[in-house]
Simulated assay, not measured.
Amino acid sequence: MADPYERSAEYLDLMIAGAWRSLVPALTEALKGLGAVAGPVVDLGAGTGRGAAVICAALPGDEAVLAVEPSAAMRAVLLARVHDDPELRSRVTVLADDVAHAPLPDGLRAIVALNVLGHLPPAERRALWADAGRRLAPGGAIVVNVAPPVRPERVPRTRMASVAVGALQYEGWGSAEPSGGDEITWHMEYRVLRDGRPLSQVTVDYRWWVASESALAEEAASAGLVMRPTGDPGLGLHLLTRRGD
């Protein structure tokens, strides 16, 4: 299957930097709330490695972090970030797998899957809940975020990020249209400007499966997981733990 990030990975770490300013403290708090639970941590859909860096900072020590990222273009940035930091280099193992095929160990302290659920068709999402529920250590948790839209609806074209680097301005624009009973198609544009004049533009379309929080909670419950919100409601962050933990 074609890599939807092959043409856009050049821009994505810049585009998501602003969102991560809010995610860092929320993810840190969620992970520290796991208390004395021991075991490795998995970062599913690790992207450019911002999440892996937060995991290592929030959970100091020598526990392994498995960063799972199927996109070769995204892994190039991820590996550079990991290699550049001595602690990340000693703890983070980068796996070139997708969510469905990653060889996850048992006894996991946490699974972090931010900005990932929309990439998974419903059957793969349900398989993730079932597999993750079996592999969590007692007291472990899955950390996910639920981003709008949560139903197949139109999203008008919006500038999502604008970042200056040197003499150039980088912009990310997005819009979406319904493309199925439970999915939308995102239309993304990445523009590079100098003095307000466009130098280049890359456009990328990708599929995104949508689901409401209540629908996700029902799916998770069928796998023996309890889903609850955590942190600032605006971030859509949720913890999933095994029933009874």
Rank of each mutant, 00 (worst) to 15 (best):
Q201G: 01
R135G: 05
I55G: 05
Q169K: 12
D182N: 09
E6I: 12
P149W: 07
M227D: 04
R228D: 00
A19P: 00
V54D: 04
P86S: 06
G18D: 14
A147W: 09
T28E: 07
A123C: 07
R50C: 00
D106H: 11
L66P: 00
W186M: 10
L95Y: 09
V77H: 05
D195Y: 09
W208F: 08
H238L: 08
T230Q: 01
R194L: 06
A220Y: 04
G18F: 01
G174K: 02
G133M: 10
S212P: 08
V99P: 11
L104G: 02
A17D: 14
A220H: 04
V155W: 07
Q201A: 14
R243E: 15
L12I: 13
V163P: 02
E87A: 11
D62Q: 15
A96Q: 00
L237N: 06
S214T: 14
P156V: 12
R207N: 09
G107D: 10
G51C: 12
T230I: 15
L120P: 05
L108A: 00
A72T: 01
D3S: 12
V94K: 10
G139C: 07
P149I: 13
R89W: 00
A223W: 03
E183S: 15
T158I: 03
R50Y: 09
A46T: 09
D84N: 13
A127T: 01
R135P: 07
L235H: 07
A36F: 02
I111S: 02
R50E: 09
A76H: 06
A53G: 05
P156L: 10
A9F: 12
V144T: 10
N145I: 15
E63R: 10
L27R: 02
M227L: 15
V99S: 14
A80L: 07
L114M: 15
A38G: 08
T203Y: 00
